[in-house]
Design a protein around this nucleic acid. Structure first.
Lengths: 214, 214
DNA sequence: ACAGAAATAGGCCGAATGGCCTATACGGAC
DNA sequence: GTCCGTATAGGCCATTCGGCCTATTTCTGT
């Protein structure tokens, strides 16, 4: 039984080429979408095994489409395609639930391999991008979007500013709140992260992927 | 001119199989070592282009052997082989100067490809391990063993203790020096790392790979 | 409507922190 | 032999930090 593949890209040329290549590689290309909206609709209708999804599309970008599809149909594997090795986009894509992430200049074989890996439940990504992933993988073990987060949004803001080098008065200034409130947030953070000072709190937050080191 | 390859593994069966495969792949297998000591001696004698080195070996493990070989002959490329995808070991291997890191269940072609990549100066590692690398790559850009280090050993000790959660008095106690001396070291560290407090100093040190997060 | 969490803000206080001085002893480098 | 860096240590002082209280507002879930 062949892997049922769906394509989502706004460039006809790329879709055509991709379709031929993927059929040659032995996949069943069951559908093509021209934008994010269509991708979401077609995904629910066709229920493909894997979707090759471009990041940049009109109406709705690939990341958001991925999020929606994954929410409705978590079993569908999604491999993202992108023009550039953008860490930020990669991060969003992984958070959205993408099972793979490829730069577009990779070979047909690489794409086929990534699709097969995705279909079998593995995560595939371009070697150039592999390194950038670690940071983001770390964030995966955090809720990040769910509301069962340990650290509240405000606390996270405070933590990030501290990590960025702000002192308590500076954080207060940046967030337009009093120093006392910042201290309150910090005290709460210390409890939650089992830290006794800002240094330990920030380190723990870095370990947990809550804050980023530039 | 073929790539001159040396093998280092304590399992005869694996060495034999590896030798045949690598010769088939067009490499010159110029030597084989049964343990870390022998690997270091043979490497200096044969000066191969690339060494395929097992991590777990009697006498001296592959990581330590790698470190010694890299110190004496930095031009020799070393690809590490391991049974399990252990992040910690990968970290040590990369720090020791390994140019590649493969899990043993990968194909002959993958090994050959990794050897060729290593020979041409690239770093190759199993996709499963690629992600774990980022942290360690960061540490690579530091001297780590040279004496042109920015932060002195003592300062590094202080930094590590701070990162481990010690306060100034605690660091003083641990190092059997006065709090004042600790403060002096910290002041010196702040200058060197362009930090104004311990939090920034530790973060910068983490970025530079001077200290490690447990 | 009411409970609970989150965000806001204040007071108080002792300890820790960081900046800016000086000073000594011990190395190695030139 | 002198100079420089490192490690050691002290004093002084303003600021910051963290702990321990209380309190109000808003929002969300029940």
């Amino acid at each position: 039984m062949n892997i049922r593949l769906m394509l989502a890209d706004d460039h006809r040329m790329l879709r055509e080429g991709l379709r031929r290549s993927m059929i040659e590689q032995g996949f069943d290309v069951v559908g093509e979408a021209r934008d994010g909206d269509e991708a979401v609709r077609l995904a629910e209708e066709l229920k493909p095994d894997v979707i090759l999804m471009d990041v940049t599309m009109p109406e709705m970008d690939g990341v958001e489409a991925t999020r929606q599809i994954k929410e409705a149909l978590p079993d569908i594997r999604i491999v993202m395609l992108t023009m550039h090795a953008d860490q930020e986009v990669l991060a969003s894509a992984i958070r959205a639930g993408a099972n793979g992430y490829l730069v577009k200049d990779c070979s047909t074989e690489e794409i086929a391999s990534a699709v097969r890996m995705a279909a079998s439940g593995e995560t595939a990504l371009s070697p150039q991008l592999a390194a950038s992933m670690l940071d983001e993988v770390r964030k995966m073990d955090q809720p990040a979007n769910d509301e069962d987060r340990i650290i509240t949004r405000r606390e996270e803001e405070v933590l990030q500013l501290i990590a960025d080098g702000c002192s308590t008065p500076e954080v207060a200034e940046r967030l337009f709140i009093s120093q006392k409130t910042v201290k309150n947030h910090l005290a709460s953070i210390y409890q939650k992260l089992d830290a006794r000072d800002r240094t330990q709190a920030v380190l723990q937050a870095v370990r947990m992927g809550i804050v980023h080191l530039d």
